[in-house]
Amino acid sequence: MDTLLFALFAGIAILSAVVMIMQRHPVSSALALVGVMGSLAILYLLLGATFIAAAQLIVYAGAIMVLFLFVIMLLNAGAEPKPLRQSFLARALGFPLGIALIAILGFLIQRTVPPDSVVVRFADAKAGSPQDIGRALFTQYLLPFEVTSVLVLIAILGAVVLARKET
């Protein structure tokens, strides 16, 4: 069951990511990214991170991406125009280099984390409930938590200043 769910949602995530970078229209890209985020939430659940999975859906998919979609719709952004002239070199080299990037990263992972050393089973997950997160957040990670709250405050101020009408 774990294998099946993992294969299904990892597949959806990668497929949506490919669709996202191949689509010319920003709305299609945004929706594909929502697909990636949704399937990542399922993968988090498989890893036992229930709270993070819910936060992923609420914060990322439910708030940040809605903001993106809102801006795209507000600006009525159309599809990217096809480039007038396309470099042959970029076509010929870009695709293999992209594959190479994935291959290098995969190789590094294979080397540093020996395969089959840890096996993921849903029932074996030790931590990740809201209680665990809350306890760690308000004891061990209290300072970073406060700092991020200041960061969010600054971001709010920045957004307000940027969006305000010039007088």
């Binding site: 995530a13 993968l43 995969g106 992972i109 984390v113 395969p115 096996v119």
Partner: peptide
Amino acid sequence: PAVPLTAYLIVSAIL
């Protein structure tokens, strides 16, 4: 029987 941890990391690398 179950998914190795590496699989998750590789998905992460691909993304």
